[in-house]
Design a protein around this nucleic acid. Structure first.
Length: 841
DNA sequence: CTCTCCCT
């Protein structure tokens, strides 16, 4: 495009119409929000419009972009409009690459760069205006940059202009955050896109359905198809589905996701050299990061995969979820960039109504250790006092602070240490910065820089078909070295990725200003990583399972040689909910290195606990690093208190069944429970209640006991009696007797197993002559009678004996007389003589 | 039995 053509095109842009208002707002005030739909041209027009404002008084305009590529291309585009090269009036600055000069008036930077600028000059002395572009993405770095810029403006730089630009933002909250800033709206310029809802039939697989819709749509409409899926797995399935149904002549399938080697990504984005129509199967990478010309058809699965952070375990995990309405609209818009298009949504109108309106901002679901370090370096220990659209969630923030403390970046009170300041300057995740600083001391910064670069970049390895991926980070280090020395990449490595890693690792080493340390010893990889991930040092439990110092369990497929290492450091992990976490990248480390370099975290202690396999208390001398036990030996004389506590732990773990519940003890417990239910002043005797008060009632009797068989010797009856005391015990015997005397002279034990309905089971013949049902509880509670045959089988259950004698007895008698003819079955039971034998003597 | 995307 020539300079004139660019100028001409620029004049048509919708943004031109709102620029005067925007300029006026920034003259009369100091902040504003610009809401402009895609295609309005805001990114390239707005910074240039402010270039000659008097209030700049020689200062620069800084514009933030969420991606390096976007920052560079915005700078290039604006330079072209001025007939210049980047680095003259308009420049850019991203990690490892910048084009700026003393003449530069507009600096386009990635979001994290602003934080670095503010950390080295809180007043931003040479900046007159900060523009936040694409703010609706709500990246962590953008939110942080805005919070810091607002503090700077409030305290040091009243005149600092802040403009927040966004495509689809609910403008009110951010305008309020800027102090009731005016909102300027600008329409966009998009071709119309028709929306079709096409949910899969019940029970049919989404991938199969998608393949069918792709086929159908390409038959009825022109242009390339862009299909959105949550991840690689689903992409491969749809691809297989399309291939098995036959790809028509003139079409080609192009997968597109971040892990894919650069060459294959390029093939998906660029027009097909043979002029075929593309079926592009993409993740959300194609939602904002990459734009593809020629797409007229979008097919959206409606799902996306995101990484979430578990504040509970301190580890990340992947989750597949429905997209938001904002995401779905963004995806649909991809069909209307160059011509009118059509978008198929593989969900129903009904589902559409339930989608959340926008994606959660990153600050609500990510690891906050980096944020906590920046704030500590800024001098803030409690983020609650700052201006946030969404304040950082407390649990994750606290996790982040704990990690920083462990890495030596902050003190207990949250204030930053000198080491922490250096870590923040290095501009890596605090874990990786801590590793770099430690490696420097050990003369291993060369290896550490390669490891950090590998972890920073996307994985350079593709797993072979069918084979499980290799999780040993040393194989990546080897690939990097091979590439550096011979310019040769292994069959599975991505060359563009290797190039980036080499560049990145050299940059890091240079930044440390360390002497180049040489390649280092690859076998120290696990050790170096342990300085970054001290909470993820794993000890083998066999079968590829490892216990981490944090207490979490993780695992590796057993086919991997790494699964047989005794100790590993786990750098990347997917913390599956419920199940063991999955190790994605790790390296082995030796016990010697571990003991030498983590000496200050290793503690020696005597542990006394219940060993279920032993059925008793075991005392051991343990050498521990966090939750893992490096060595242990039997301990001699453990303190009696600890043994008793361990016994209680055993009972809590295995239940009250460990105690000798004789018939008498069990009945006593039930009788007490009956009293409790009538009067809460009596102790609750249910399992949970007893277990929660073991210290009170059982502990005093445990002296000298060590195991199950010792416990079996306890006398529970006196123990339970002691629990209620003498007065209550006397009352208990009176109100809830153990036995009842019946007319035959027998004393029959009452069954209290159901405290609501105590039972007296007694032979019918023993009850002759008794008019009324016996009662307990000072005559309040009638017993339920189980009247038994001579063979002890219940023949009648009643709590109204008088009525039984009158009515039921004669029926029962007839039957019993037939079965037990030798027994005594009188016609008048109330006058008869009770007996425990066949007949009264 | 398969890792979403991005950045200092």
């Amino acid at each position: 495009m020539t300079k004139d053509m660019v100028r001409e095109k620029m004049n048509e842009l919708p943004i031109r119409r709102v620029l005067p208002e925007l300029l006026e707002r920034m003259r009369s005030g100091t902040s504003a929000v610009l809401v402009a739909e895609p295609g309005a041209g805001k990114t390239t027009q707005v910074p240039l419009a402010f270039l000659n404002e008097a209030w700049l008084s020689g200062r620069k305009i800084v514009m933030l972009e969420p991606r390096r590529l976007a920052a560079r291309s915005a700078a290039e585009y604006m330079s072209r409009m001025l007939g210049e090269q980047p680095g003259e009036t308009v420049g850019y600055r991203v990690r490892m690459d910048s084009r700026t000069s003393r003449r530069t008036k507009i600096e386009v930077v990635t979001e994290g760069i602003l934080t670095r600028m503010l950390q080295s000059d809180a007043g931003l002395e040479d900046v007159g205006m900060v523009i936040f572009d694409e703010f609706h993405e709500r990246n962590l770095q953008g939110d942080l940059g805005l919070a810091l810029a607002l503090e700077s403006k409030a305290v040091l730089r009243e005149d600092l202009r802040i403009l927040v630009m966004s495509a689809t933002l609910e403008a009110e909250p951010v305008a309020a955050l800027l102090g009731d800033a005016p909102v300027v709206n600008c329409p966009g310029r998009q071709f119309p896109v028709e929306t079709v809802y096409r949910p899969p039939a019940a029970g049919s697989a989404l991938e199969k359905h998608m393949a069918a819709v792709i086929r159908e749509a390409s038959a009825g409409h022109p242009g390339d198809v862009l299909a959105f899926l949550p991840g690689k797995g689903e992409i491969r399935k749809v691809q297989a589905e399309l291939e098995s149904g036959g790809v028509p002549a003139g079409f080609v399938i192009r997968p597109l996701y971040g892990q894919l080697p650069q060459k294959e990504q390029d093939a998906a984005v660029q027009p097909d050299p043979e002029g075929r129509r593309k079926w592009i199967l993409a993740t959300s990478i194609a939602e904002t990061s990459l734009t593809i010309d020629g797409v007229r058809i979008v097919v959206d699965s409606g799902y996306m995969r995101t990484q979430l952070f578990s504040a509970r375990t301190g580890m990340p995990y992947l989750a597949t979820d429905r997209v938001s309405r904002a995401s779905a609209d963004q995806r649909r818009g991809r069909a209307g960039r160059t011509a009118p298009g059509i978008a198929y949504r593989l969900w129903s109108h009904e589902t559409q109504n339930h989608l959340r309106s926008r994606n959660a901002p990153e600050i609500l679901q990510t690891d906050l250790a980096p944020l906590a370090l920046e704030l500590a370096a800024w001098g803030v220990q409690n983020p609650a006092g700052m201006a946030w659209l969404d304040p950082p969630p407390e649990a994750a923030y606290e996790r982040g602070r704990e990690l920083l403390q462990r890495l030596g970046a902050v003190r207990r009170d949250g204030s930053v240490t000198d080491k922490g300041k250096r870590m923040a300057e290095i501009g890596l995740h605090p874990r990786l910065s801590a590793m770099m600083l430690q490696a420097e001391k050990l003369g291993q910064s060369g290896l550490a820089a390669v490891l950090a670069a590998i972890l920073q970049e996307r994985d350079i390895f593709r797993s072979g078909a069918g084979a499980p991926p290799d999780s040993d980070i040393r194989s990546r280090v080897q690939a990097v070295r091979l590439w550096e020395q011979k310019g040769f990449a292994g069959p599975n490595a991505d060359e563009a990725g290797l190039r980036r890693i080499v560049q990145e690792s050299r940059y890091m080493q240079k930044q440390l200003e360390a002497e180049l340390s040489g390649p280092g010893d690859i076998e120290k990889s696990g050790l170096l990583l342990s300085f970054a991930y001290p909470d993820r040092i794993g000890q083998s439990r066999g079968g590829g399972k490892f216990l981490l110092t944090s207490g979490r369990g993780v695992e590796l497929p057993r086919e991997q040689p790494l699964s047989r290492a005794a100790y590993v450091t786990v750098a990347a992990v997917d913390d599956k909910k419920g199940a063991e976490g999955k190790i994605l990248l790790a390296a082995p480390l030796s016990l010697e290195d571990l003991q030498q370099h983590h000496r200050e975290d290793i503690v020696e202690e005597t542990t006394v606990d219940w060993d279920p396999s032993l059925g008793g208390v075991k005392a051991r001398r343990q050498v521990c690093l966090g939750a893992i036990v490096l060595r242990e030996s039997p301990a001699g004389q453990p303190p009696a208190e600890a043994v008793a506590q361990a016994l209680l732990d055993g009972i809590r773990a295995e239940g009250l069944g460990l105690l000798p519940w004789t018939k008498q003890a069990a009945q006593l417990r039930q009788r007490l429970q009956l009293m409790h239910e009538a009067d809460p002043d009596w102790p609750d005797m249910r399992d949970d209640a007893l277990l929660s008060r073991l210290e009170e009632w059982l502990l005093p009797y445990l002296d000298g006991l060590k195991n199950r068989s010792d416990l079996q010797k306890l006398q529970l009856v006196p123990i339970l009696e002691q629990m209620v005391g003498w007065d209550k015990k006397t009352r208990l015997d009176k109100e809830v007797p153990t036995h009842i005397a019946v007319p035959s002279g027998s004393r029959i034990a009452v069954d209290y197993s159901d405290p609501k309905q105590p039972v007296l089971a007694v032979k019918l013949q023993e009850m002759f002559g008794l008019h009324e049902t016996p009662k307990i509880g000072m005559g309040r509670i009638p017993l339920t009678l189980h009247l038994l045959s001579p063979a002890q089988r219940p023949v009648q259950i009643t709590s109204d004996l008088a009525s039984f004698w009158k009515h039921g007895y004669f029926e029962v008698k007839k039957d019993l007389k037939g079965r037990y003819p030798k027994h005594y079955w009188p016609d008048d039971p109330l006058e008869a003589i009770p007996t425990r034998r066949t007949r009264p003597q």
